[in-house]
């Protein structure tokens, strides 16, 4: 199927790849926010994951171990955030911003010796006859394993939040931490675990960039994807499948406008390339206004500090 000289199957395939790092970071942040914590440090945790994953993959020769390391790297940084906001009761917004700045700087320091190295490559998953199916084979079944794992993760998070007992506790903590506390749930423990999960996902998203998408390590290589992921969570009104649709939409806009340009279609590129960021800004403005929260399905205790004595 073609539109002009653009092959739709190839476009869809590119879109899935472009959306994967955003989606990974967004699904992690979604769980964090569902637990009532706003962690603005997604960008910082992503870049840490990109860096740590790269270093480990290069040293072990295995992209898979690299990804595991990336998850731990992102988690490590998120623990710092957990310590600050859950134990020391600092402001979440300020701590999150600090986390981003710290992550950018620290990863630059760690990765200094790794600039200009090619990492071990992640092979495309061999899906045998599936990849041979016309159109769908090229669009859906010609990716690396991380693309599919990410979709599986979205499904798992959806199931967890909707049906698992632990997921319901997490939601209770996010909706009303005082009530959850009164029921005997460990608000802080739940939140710390959620923050760690968010860090791990962001780390994986970053590593997807440095190990598969680009694949190289360069300082500051996430260039704002973490912020888009943050906006996406709100855009999806905290629903996992909507987050996935949103990520594919964002990824789609990016890929589509580049393909339109390459195909020589005359379009106002400046607006199209701006659009993900414009939507991000609009959403972030919206999220910070108190009144909008209810209508957005935002977790009731989002960004409210919890102190057991209250």
């Amino acid at each position: 199927m073609m539109i002009g000289s653009i092959n739709i199957a190839v476009l869809l395939a590119a879109l899935m790849v472009a959306a994967t790092p955003i989606l990974l970071a967004a699904i992690g942040e979604l769980v964090v926010e569902k637990a009532g914590v706003l962690n603005l440090g997604v960008e910082g945790m992503m870049i840490m994951g990109a860096c740590v994953g790269f270093i480990i993959a290069v040293n072990t020769g295995s992209p898979l171990i690299g990804f595991m390391g990336a998850a731990l790297g992102g988690m490590g940084l998120s623990l710092l955030f957990a310590l600050l906001t859950q134990a020391l009761m600092t402001n979440q917004v300020a701590s999150g911003l600090a986390l981003t700045l710290f992550g950018l700087g620290f990863s630059a320091l760690l990765g200094q010796k790794y600039v200009g190295i090619t990492p071990p490559r992640t092979p495309k998953l061999d899906l045998g006859p599936l990849s041979e199916i016309p159109f769908l084979g090229r669009a859906l079944f010609s990716h690396d394993i991380m693309v599919y794992l990410t979709i599986a993760l979205v499904a798992a998070v959806w199931w967890f939040l909707k049906y698992a007992r632990a997921g319901m506790i997490l939601r209770a903590v996010g909706e009303n931490h005082d009530a959850a506390h009164a029921l005997g749930y460990h608000v802080k423990r739940v939140r710390v675990l959620a923050i760690m999960f968010g860090g791990a996902c962001a780390g994986l998203g970053g590593a997807y960039l440095s190990l598969i998408r680009v694949p190289q390590w360069t300082e500051g290589m996430t260039v704002g994807i973490g912020w888009i992921a943050l906006a996406l969570v709100v855009f999806a009104s905290w629903r996992p499948w909507r987050a996935m649709a949103g990520a594919y939409l964002f990824g789609g806009v990016v890929v589509l406008q580049l393909n339109l340009q390459a195909a020589g279609v005359k379009i106002p590129v400046e607006y199209l390339s701006m659009s993900p960021y414009l939507i991000t800004i609009a959403v972030l403005v919206f999220i910070s206004s108190g009144k909008a929260r209810g209508s957005l399905n935002a977790p009731g205790s989002l960004n409210r500090p919890f102190h057991a004595s209250n």
Binding site: I6, P21, R213, V214, V223, L258, A262, A263
Partner: peptide, 14 residues
């Protein structure tokens, strides 16, 4: 980097 890679792919596709 990510955007440049995507642009490169689009051009090759063309």
């Amino acid at each position: 980097p990510a955007q440049e890679a995507a642009a490169a792919e689009a051009l090759i596709e063309q």
